[in-house]
Nucleic acid binder design. Structure first.
Lengths: 223, 223
DNA sequence: TATAATTTTAAATATTTGTAAAATTTTACT
DNA sequence: AGTAAAATTTTACAAATATTTAAAATTATA
C-alpha cells in the first residue's frame, strides 16, 4: 500500500518485549508505534496526536474493555482491540463499545498492518469530502457546499447521474432510461430539466453539453 | 443495540442453506439479508440499495477477491469478506483491495452482527445517539428527540413504515395495505395524513414525495 | 347516547413535468 | 467569412400530479 505520511499509533500493551518487536516490524510499513505498558499513563496521553489506538484487553489493574469505553468518551480515534482472550463475548462487547476491529492473539503482524490500513481507509473516506456537490443517495439529497440543494425529483435524478459520472460524459439515453421519473419524457424535456439544474448549480459548476451525445458535469476552478 | 431502521445487506454466498439460516438469525437483529448464490447476478444488483456487502471468497466461476475489486470500482459500499480460507495472504489481499473486515469461517453469527454494526458505525450509516425519531413498536410510540410524539393511529402507522424504511421510498400502496387502519382509505386520505405527519416532524425532518410512487423520510442536516 | 377524536371526502391551490415554438449556438460546406 | 442545416437552449404555457383546507362522516370513549 502506497502511503506518504507516517502513521502514528498508540498501543497499550504490558508485554514490553512484544511491543518492541511489533514496533520494529511496523516501522518497515511506515507506522510509528508508541507503546505504554501502563494503561493509566496511556490514558493520560493526548489522543489527538495519534491516528489509531491498539488496545490489549488483559491489562494489569484496568480492564481493557473499560479502557475502550473511557477512550470513546473523549475521542472518536479508531481503536483496534487485540487480545489473547478470543472469547466471543469479549469480542462482541469490545466491538459494541466502539472498537473498530478485534484481532485475537497471536496474530500475524502482516494482518495487523492490513487491518490498520483498512480501518484508516474507512475513517479517511468520511473525513475527506471536499467536492462542492455531495450526493446523499439515502436521503435523496444533494448538498452544495454543505447546504441542501432544493431540487425536484427529476432534477435530482439528472444531477445524481452527473455527479456519479463526474469526469465522464453521460448520454441523454443513459439519463432518460435511468429512472421511471422520465418514463414518458421526450428528449426535449430533458433539455428543460438540464436548463433548470444549470441555474441551481451555477455558483459552483456547470453542465457542459457534449454535442450529439449528452452532458458532463464540471466544477469551476476555485471550487 | 437500539435500532430503528432495518439494515439492508447484500450477501454473495453459494451455500444456500447457510445463507438461509444466517438470514433468519440476522432478522432478529433488525438486519435484512438478500443473498445471491451466483456472483454474476449479485454483481448486477444496484449496490446503492444496500448498506453493506458480505462476500464469500470461494465462489464458483469467479474469485471472491476479484469480485471485491469489481465492487470497489463502482461503489464505496462497506464490504465484509467471509471465507473458509483463513490463509493470511488472502486476508491481507482482501483488506488491501478495499474490504472493511475479514471474518474467517466458521464464525459465530453474533460476532458477525457486532462487526456489521462496528463497520456501519464507522461509516456513520447508523446514528448512535442522535437518531431524531425513535420507534418503540411494543408501546406504539415514536419519540422525537426522546420526547413522545402525539400521533393518531393512522399517523403512527404511516410514520412507523417510513422510519422502518428509512433510506428507501415507500409506495402509497405499501402504506395503505400495511394496516387495517387504512382499510377503507382512498389515496387522497393518505395524502391528508402525510400532510399532518409532516407538520409534526417538521422540526427534525420531512417526508419527500416520490412522484408517481410514494414517500420517503429524510432527516434535516443538523439532526 | 352524547361528545370528542379521528378519518374521509371533495374542492381549491400549488408544484412539477411535458410540450411546442422561438431563439441561439454549433457545425459543415461553399 | 458567409450561410444553411442541425442540434441545443430557452421561454411560456398546458397537463399531470400532489398538497392543503375545511367540512362531513365515521369511529371511539366517557
Amino acid at each position: 500500500m502506497q502511503m506518504n505520511k507516517v502513521i502514528d499509533i498508540l498501543m497499550i500493551e504490558d508485554d514490553f518485549e512484544f511491543a518492541k518487536l511489533l514496533g520494529s516490524f511496523l516501522e518497515k510499513h511506515n507506522i510509528k508505534l508508541k507503546n505504554y505498558t501502563d494503561p493509566f499513563i496511556g490514558l493520560s496521553v493526548p489522543l489527538e496526536k495519534f491516528d489509531l489506538v491498539i488496545l490489549d484487553l488483559t491489562l494489569p489493574g484496568l480492564d481493557g474493555l473499560q479502557m475502550c469505553k473511557e477512550i470513546r468518551k473523549k475521542s472518536a480515534v479508531p481503536i483496534i482491540i487485540s487480545s489473547a482472550r478470543s472469547d466471543i463475548e469479549d469480542k462482541i462487547k469490545g466491538l459494541n463499545l466502539g472498537a473498530d476491529d478485534y484481532l485475537p492473539k497471536p496474530y500475524d503482524p502482516k494482518e495487523l498492518v492490513a487491518r490498520i490500513y483498512s480501518v484508516l481507509r474507512r475513517y479517511k473516506k468520511i473525513e475527506e469530502k471536499n467536492e462542492p456537490l455531495l450526493l446523499d443517495e439515502k436521503n435523496s439529497t444533494i448538498y452544495l457546499n454543505s447546504k441542501a440543494l432544493s431540487l425536484t425529483p427529476a432534477e435530482f435524478e439528472v444531477l445524481k447521474i452527473l455527479i456519479k459520472n463526474y469526469g465522464n460524459s453521460v448520454s441523454k439515453e443513459q439519463i432518460l432510461y435511468s429512472s421511471t421519473v422520465f418514463a414518458n419524457s421526450s428528449s426535449n424535456s430533458l433539455a428543460v430539466i438540464i436548463n433548470r439544474v444549470r441555474k441551481k448549480i451555477s455558483s459552483i459548476g456547470s453542465i457542459k453539453t457534449v454535442r450529439g451525445v449528452g452532458y458532463r458535469l464540471v466544477y469551476h476552478e476555485n471550487s
